[in-house]
Each structure stands twice: as C-alpha cells, then as structure tokens.
Nucleic acid binder design. Structure first.
Lengths: 242, 242
DNA sequence: CGGCGCCTTGAAAAGAATCAAGTCTCGTGG
DNA sequence: CCACGAGACTTGATTCTTTTCAAGGCGCCG
C-alpha cells in the first residue's frame, strides 16, 4: 500500500473536511488495499453486488447505466476523492456501472466492515450519508441540465462543471484542465447525439470560449462559459472525503 | 399527534423493512409532531436550511429545482413513506424545493436530534444512508429516462413508475391509481413541453393503454405501458421507512 | 358574470437526430 | 517499412421530433 491515510494527498485540499487522528486510525484499518485500474476497466457492474467499496485517489472514470436497447446514460464522472460503491454497500446491488477512463488508483474498503463503521464511527457514518447526499444533489443538477437546457447550454454546462470541480481539486493550471474523456462520453451524459455534441464543441472553439482537444480542456473565457451554461457561480461546498 | 410510530399505517406494508421494538421507541422520541400541509404549500425551499426533517405519511407532493430563467425541473415525486429534507440535515441547505400537491400529513423530526440518531442508533443511521442511496438510484433512473428516451417513452415511463410505486403502496384499485398532479408537473419532470406531453397522453388514451384524467390514472394495459416505457419489470426493492 | 387555471388542438418554426462520408492517429502484422 | 484496420473526431445534407405560437374550451370561485 503505497499511500496510507496519514499522508493522503487529497485530504489537505481546501475542498475536503479534516478528520480527527482517531478517525484517521480507523480509516487506516478500514482501508484494505489499493486497486490500480487500466483505462477501460470495469470497476463495478450494474445489477451486481460488490465485496468492495472504493475512493478514487488518482485518475478519472465514469458511472453509467445501460438501457435495454444498448443506449447508455452517463450518470456521473468520477474524479479524485469520489466515493464509489455505496449503493452496493447499503442496497443489494449497484444501480450503475463504473469504469476507468484513465489509469486509476483507488483505495479499497471491505463491504463487510461497513457495518462496523456505522457502529463505532458515528461521525464517519454521518460523513458517508453526507457524501451520498452530495451525490444526490449532483444528480439533481445534472437532471435539471439534461431536462431543461438546449444543446449549447448542455455542453457548456458539463464543461463548466469539470472546470469548477477540477479547479477545486487544484488540477487547474492556467485555465487548462485534463479532460480525458471521449466526446461520446459527454454526449451520453447530456443526452445529446455525438454529432450534435461535436458541432457544439466546434462552436465554443470558434467563439473562443473553450477548446477541448487531446484530453485537455482550455477555458479561454470562464464567464462566457458559465453564462452559456445558464449557471451562475454556485460555489462548491466543502465536503467529506471517505 | 394522531399517529404514533407503534401504529404507523405504512410500516406493515410489504414494501417497508420492519424495525425492532427498541428502534420504534427511539422513533417515537425522535418524532416531534405532525405537519398538515394544504395543496400548494411550500414545505422546504431550495437554498435554505430547515430545522426539520419529514417523512410523508399521507398525500403526495413534488421536489423541484428552479433555474435562473424560471424554468422548473421536477426532480422527484413524493409519495407516502418518502423521507424529506436529508440534504438540509447533512449539508448546509436544500438543493431543491418541496411542495405539497395534495393535502399532506407528515411526521416531523428535529434536525438537531439527527446527530443523536447517528450516535445511538447505528441501525437507523444505516437505514438513513440506505434511503439516501435509494433516492440517488431513483434519480439515476430518471436521468436515464430524460436523457435517452423519446417523448412517448418518457411519458409512458413516468406513468409506469407511478403505477408501480403506488401499487407497492397498496394504492392500486383495479389498475386505477390516484395521480393528483398537473400535466405541467409531468412535463417538467421529463423535460418535455406541456403541449407535447398533452398530445402524448392523448395518444396513450387513444391506444387504450392508459388514461389519466381528473387526478386518476387508469392503466388499461400495463404490459404495453411498460413496453413503451422501455422498462422491463424491475421489481421495487424492500426499503427502510424512517 | 368574469377571470383564472388547466386541459386540448392545429399550424409553423426550430433544434437535434440520423445518415453518410472523410480525415487523422496509432498500433499491428505482413 | 508500409499497408491495414480500428477508434475517435469532423463536417455537410436530410429528416423528423419537439418546441413554440396561437386560440379555444371547460369548470370553478369570487
């Protein structure tokens, strides 16, 4: 285990809540290992239970649901600090799949010790519920975007969201952030066709608002981007890191 | 307080998990009263914290988010047994508003005793997280529907969802269920215009699949409805009642 | 009686999906 | 070393779903 909770690279970030020494000790026991996943690896599968829960440490991935006819809805993008597998932890099975988009490193926890967490670490249990509530509110925002915005606003919305989240993770260098997804992934997230997504991205590029190519998103005009996304500066709230 | 947890009308339903006598006693203390809300009443407001949490006992309502330009996205329909206000309980504030569509009765809990629940009732804390995870998966399904389905499928999907949920609550009488919403509510939920929703409902009526009028949904052909919704019989899982 | 809220319907306009090529890069194998 | 194919990104043309616009109807309440 190359990274233990005491020198967690994410914890010091402004975005995440601090935890006590005692909680840190518990997490150290709770964490049973690390998982390294290659791009394209399926980490969790819809409809299946999992013996493990994870926290993303490095790399990015995505959550998605598959419909009967093969269509795919991306229900979330996984960035460092995201907790994965809660559904399989408290319900019978996962309601969506999780896949690595880049090379990823994840902390591994045993599902079987989850109950121990609830019994002995009420503060951590609260954090877990908190994390779940955040996930829920994220989905609500995404639903609003997919349900109410037009193509240009949807694409701007998702780019803006990445820009904000990655900035909060200190991964913004001069308004450039890594965005290692395919256009199809964003299209599936926003409920747009690949073609339309592509053309909308081209427009944003032409208008010198944002360029996304070769896995790097370059935001030339953050204000204009937020405006097209119809989203006015909702700051990201401090949140727990499991 | 006309209803105490020992004779809760919802608990006996197949849909809900049982709880122990001891937990029941705790809930009795946790519950501080009842709220009766008239149709149209705002129960919780987006962007605001609330001193109370609720469980819907009778009646129906909806959760929605309002966009800057006035558009509205319905992010959920509230039926008896639904827990309300978790976001305000664990985060700073609500991320969506909650409004009563019919006359409603709700159990009232104090936000301040929530921490006590986590400290002394790990099993109930787990249930709370479970409830949150279910809410999250519901949103994921809704997102998939809004993102991937066409108009007919969306309308069928939401009607079918009501049909299933209300059936599980024993509120289905001969394939008729109460559906006390306006067409605009369903339109705002599925990201469709009111006009298109109306025309799609007309089609379902013409095809003798489902008729919805005067607050009552009549499902003439459940199989066909499910088929148009592109959703094949996912059974509703047993879930906790808070 | 008048106005308001909700449902209904037709016609026109627009936004997005689909269809159809074509380019570019990269890894593989002849 | 180069041909080949797969995967991702582009772009133009066409089709069609859905929105917007417009208007009328119905029931209810002040």
């Amino acid at each position: 285990m190359t990274i233990n909770c005491e020198n967690c690279p994410l914890r010091p970030l402004e975005l995440f809540d601090d935890i006590s020494k005692e909680e840190e000790q518990f997490m150290l026991r709770f964490k049973t290992g690390e998982l390294n996943a290659q791009p394209g690896t399926q980490i969790l599968t819809e409809g299946r239970a999992s013996a493990h829960l994870y926290t993303a440490l490095k790399g990015m991935g995505l959550r998605y649901k598959t419909l009967e006819d093969g269509r795919r809805q991306v229900v979330g993008f996984i960035l460092p600090g995201d907790f994965i597998g809660l559904q399989s932890g408290v319900m019978e099975e996962m309601q969506h799949s999780v896949e690595a988009s880049t090379y990823m490193t994840l902390c591994v926890f045993n599902r079987s010790s989850l109950w121990d967490l609830f019994k002995t670490q009420p503060r951590r249990a609260f954090d877990l519920t908190h994390a779940s509530a955040i996930e829920e509110s994220l989905l609500g925002e995404m639903l609003s975007a997919v349900g109410q915005l037009d193509g240009m606003a949807k694409v701007s919305w998702v780019l803006n969201r990445f820009y904000k989240r990655l900035t909060a993770l200190d991964l913004n260098h001069n308004d450039r952030v890594t965005l290692p997804y395919r256009q199809q992934d964003l299209a599936d997230a926003m409920g747009l066709s690949l073609v339309h997504t592509n053309k909308t991205l081209a427009k944003l590029r032409q208008d010198s608002i944002a360029s996304w190519a070769d896995g790097v998103l370059d935001v030339h005009n953050p204000d204009q981007l937020a405006q097209r996304a119809h989203s006015v500066g909702e700051r990201l709230l401090k949140r727990p890191l499991i």
